Simulated scan of single mutants.
Amino acid sequence: MSTPSIQNNPLIGIWKLISATAIHADGTVTQDVYGTHPVGYITYTEDGHMMVMFSRSDRSPLSQEIQSPLTHQMQSLPVKELAQAFTTFNGYAGTYTLSGNTVTHQIEIASIPNRVGTTLVRTFTLSENRVTLLTPPVLNDGVETAFELAWERI
Rank of each mutant, 00 (worst) to 15 (best):
S2A: 15
T3S: 04
T3Y: 01
I6D: 02
Q7D: 13
N8S: 15
N9Y: 06
N9P: 08
L11Y: 06
I12M: 01
I12S: 01
W15P: 11
W15I: 09
K16M: 07
L17Q: 06
I18L: 15
S19H: 04
A20Q: 01
H24C: 05
G27T: 05
T28V: 03
T28K: 13
V29T: 13
T30E: 11
T30F: 00
Q31S: 13
V33R: 00
Y34L: 11
Y34N: 04
T36R: 13
H37P: 00
H37K: 15
P38N: 06
P38C: 05
V39G: 00
G40S: 04
Y41F: 12
Y41V: 12
I42L: 10
T43D: 02
T43P: 00
Y44H: 09
T45A: 07
T45D: 06
T45K: 07
D47Y: 11
H49S: 09
M50V: 10
F54D: 02
S57M: 01
S57L: 05
D58K: 09
R59I: 13
P61Y: 06
L62Q: 10
Q64N: 13
Q64P: 01
E65M: 08
S68P: 04
P69D: 04
T71R: 03
H72C: 00
M74G: 01
M74N: 04
L77H: 09
P78F: 07
E81S: 08
A83T: 14
T87S: 12
F89W: 10
F89R: 06
G91W: 09
Y92K: 07
Y92W: 14
G94M: 06
T95K: 09
S99K: 14
S99A: 14
S99Y: 07
G100V: 01
N101Q: 15
T102L: 09
V103L: 03
V103D: 00
T104L: 08
Q106V: 12
E108Y: 05
I109G: 05
A110S: 15
I112N: 14
N114H: 08
R115S: 11
G117C: 10
G117Q: 11
T119Q: 14
F124M: 04
L126R: 07
E128G: 04
E128W: 00
N129Y: 02
N129R: 14
V131I: 15
T132M: 12
P136E: 15
V138A: 13
L139R: 08
D141Y: 04
D141Q: 14
G142R: 03
V143M: 10
A146L: 03
F147R: 03
E148R: 12
E148Y: 01
L149Y: 07
A150P: 00
A150D: 06
W151N: 03
E152P: 00
I154K: 11
